[in-house]
Design a protein around this nucleic acid. Structure first.
Lengths: 117, 117
DNA sequence: CTGATCAGTAACCAGGTGGTTACCTGATGA
DNA sequence: TCATCAGGTAACCACCTGGTTACTGATCAG
């Protein structure tokens, strides 16, 4: 599943928001949602396929974490639609894009400090 | 259909890209694609529902145009995922966001000058 | 060792999506 | 006027998606 389709589902958007705060286990993610745990598992698998999350097995637990760089294609696409005909915007977009890539390359899953989710 | 789901389909992404260049008729949009015209019509209806395009009837033709501000929720959401924990990025995102809104409010569908689509 | 817990998989089901063809309406222009 | 063209709608179909329950397999704690 591609990242666009991954974002199409509200449950998956919730999951990503939650993971934007900090890596979490499936149970943690599941009990904020009105659906069963297996359903959450399925969504997480799709998100992993889409390159938006990674899993780290830790004992019997599995910790899922957001992969921000997975969003790059989406950002790029949306930006490409938004920008056109206003040159002013481009530098902002450029800065954003650069930042996105840098985040991906250098910071993997380092020190999530806050979680407004 | 919400904008997220609207972006999930590759055909619809193509349509939006095409419309990012200039408003176009259904036939114009259809013959760049490997699907039937009614299928394109359906997609356009969904895009309109999602607030991503508008139609202007002109004689027997209907001209579809991109509505950039319809993408605002998507931009905002993706940004909210991307930003966290790197303060440097925020000003760029902020600039982007401001620009998006400004574009929506002030420029509606003014003077599409290019169309790399 | 054993019971409880975390979590993935399997099997199944309902409903939505994306595509098609066929048809209809309304505008155009020779 | 009338054939033609733009384009929406209807009916239909195959497939995917998202959900469920039931089961299985590890791992942890007592």
């Amino acid at each position: 599943m591609d990242p666009y389709a991954a974002l199409a589902d509200p449950v998956r958007r919730s999951l990503l928001r939650a993971l934007a705060g900090r890596p979490q286990r499936v149970v943690d993610l599941a009990d904020g949602l009105p659906i069963s745990r297996p359903a959450v598992s399925k969504h997480l698998r799709l998100l992993a396929e889409a390159g938006l999350v990674t899993v780290e097995a830790r004992g019997r637990e599995r910790h899922y974490a957001l992969v921000r760089e997975g969003l790059a294609p989406v950002t790029a696409y949306v930006d490409s639609l938004v920008v056109r005909t206003q040159p002013l915007t481009e530098h902002a977009l450029d800065a954003l894009d650069t930042e996105v890539r840098r985040t991906g390359r250098e910071r993997r899953q380092t020190t999530p400090t806050e979680e407004t989710a």
